[in-house]
Write a protein that binds this DNA or RNA. Structure first.
Lengths: 307, 307
DNA sequence: CCGAGGATGTAGGGTCGCTACATGATTGAC
DNA sequence: GTCAATCATGTAGCGACCCTACATCCTCGG
């Protein structure tokens, strides 16, 4: 395979007519250019230049190869330009993993915005709990992870994974309307309730049994909406994060604030190796906007129609 | 400018999926491939590969650059192929310098044949005496020289110039029909003739004054046909090479053989540096055929209509 | 839990390419 | 005609680079 440096030397000589000028253009001595040409001739087994007075002249073969050298160099330039453009462009495929509530409350808007602003970006979404999400991210199966991180069962971020906090999601106790509880309570007072919780293995369930040792939930359902239905039926109580709470609570349930409020951090994480990728940054921005928007919507609901 | 070896490494990894296999394909160790990739990443400031389990996986940017690498390598291959084809093809421009008689007697047929057999070759012809021709060849103004080389004023071939003999061209004395000379003579007997010769500086003139010291030609004309006309007018005698003799001698002149016959070597010369060029070889072959044809034509004329 | 398989660091040696200088060749000017 | 300027090209030496060998780390499968 012909060496690129030699082609550059030949092309420079073809352009500047003299080894001296070519050397200046290539920022080296004429001797270096001459040696490159000699090696190119040896390697190709072709005479490329001929003496012409005190200068030199390209042979037919030399001109031919110089033309091709120009094409090669142009192709290399295209490659560099494409790479540089890629560096500044939101392109390619971006797969996001997110916990269930985020999939419903944050991702639709964020992914829609990404698609609208960056038509060259194709996106994908996978629902998974934070542990699975972090694993998938670490293994490179996904490019971005949206995780809920309960302080009491804090996630461990492997080295090479960067993460930032979108914000805190507070959780409240939801009880049947007729339940005998004040407007505010503490976790310690809740030991004897009948509990509705997520499925075993889910981080919300882990969290519950961690903060209320000894509690054995009787109902295990994955979706918070289903939990609310069960609560409305008077079967028990549950702790439901506000992000997961539907805009309109079903009738028959009541919100009880817990003090101190249980809360989870919502974070977005990516591989540090991919941190510079514009698609990653754009997605993080979109998620943050989506978060702010969801927070604002909750705030306005609280003002207009206090829970 | 991106290094070609690094692009080859990236492309091999893209093709073979693993650094190990890429190393085998490139006939080097996986460590070398890995280092090339690392350097390519450093030089481009882009992440090109990511870990994937115990193997690795190309990033978007890596795939992009690998595609361009394929194009670059294809372009380089084209250059090599074009050069290889050029090595075996009669193409380009071939300029020939020849002495006057050769321009008339050899070159038309030879150049016509070259053009017919090699449409991609464009030719040129310059008339010049052997000294000028050798100079032009040496300086690279022409690619091929057809020279007449009189042993008595032998040419000096500079180093780097190769030459082969086409054949010997014998010269005869041409005298007016009524001239008092036998059918054969010697140079020594011709000291007192009135001489018709080429212009001063021409090699034929140089040759004449060299072999007949003291002779001072009275007539100096460049073309042998004109010399024949002068001879027919009874103004003097001349020595005319057979190659220059027209098929039909004008009336009023007679051929006298000289013993030993004066003769000149007709040679074709080229720069050794260009010896491998197919166009040179083809032209030399064409000239030799042209020479043989001219010799055969003279021979048949001699048989059918003895001079 | 351990072994196989794969990537990637580190040290060392060999090659390659460049620089500086000298040489050869050619041109143009005085 | 001679001399100086210009240009290409050899040679020696030095530095950079690249590759190999070996060790290490990580991951996957039993």
């Amino acid at each position: 395979m012909i060496d690129l440096g030699r082609l550059r030397a030949l092309h420079a000589v073809a352009s500047y007519k003299t080894v001296l000028a070519a050397g200046e253009a290539l920022h080296c001595t004429p001797s270096a250019v001459s040696q490159q040409l000699a090696k190119l001739e040896r390697e190709t087994g072709t005479t490329l230049v001929e003496k012409d007075g005190r200068g030199l002249r390209l042979t037919e073969a030399g001109r031919l190869l110089a033309q091709h050298a120009e094409r090669v160099m142009a192709t290399v330039d295209e490659a560099e330009a494409a790479l540089a453009a890629h560096r500044d462009t939101v392109v390619g495929r971006l797969t996001v993993v997110a916990f269930a509530t985020a999939c419903r409350a944050l991702l639709p808007w964020a992914l829609h915005k990404l698609a609208a602003e960056h038509p060259q970006l194709s996106t994908g979404l996978i629902e998974a709990n934070p542990h699975e999400g972090l694993e998938a991210l670490h293994r490179g199966h996904v490019d971005l992870a949206v995780l809920d991180d309960w302080p009491e069962v804090a996630l461990r971020y492997p080295p090479g994974i960067a993460h930032v906090e979108l914000g805190w999601d507070v959780a409240d106790l939801i009880v049947p309307s007729g339940h005998a509880t004040a407007g505010t309570t503490t976790l310690a007072q809740l030991g004897s309730e009948r509990w509705i919780s997520a499925k075993a293995g889910d981080i919300c369930h882990e969290w519950l049994v961690r903060v209320l040792p000894g509690v054995q939930p009787d109902f295990h359902v994955g979706e918070f909406e289903t939990q609310l239905t069960l609560i409305a039926a008077g079967l028990g109580v549950a702790i439901i994060p506000r992000l997961a709470r539907p805009p309109q609570l079903p009738t028959g349930v009541r919100i009880v604030a817990i003090n101190p409020a249980p809360r989870r951090r919502v974070v977005v994480a990516w591989r540090e190796a991919a941190a510079a990728r514009p698609a990653i940054k754009a997605a993080e921005r979109a998620l943050r906007e989506s978060w702010d928007q969801a927070s604002a919507a909750r705030a306005s609901r609280t003002v207009n129609a206090p829970a």
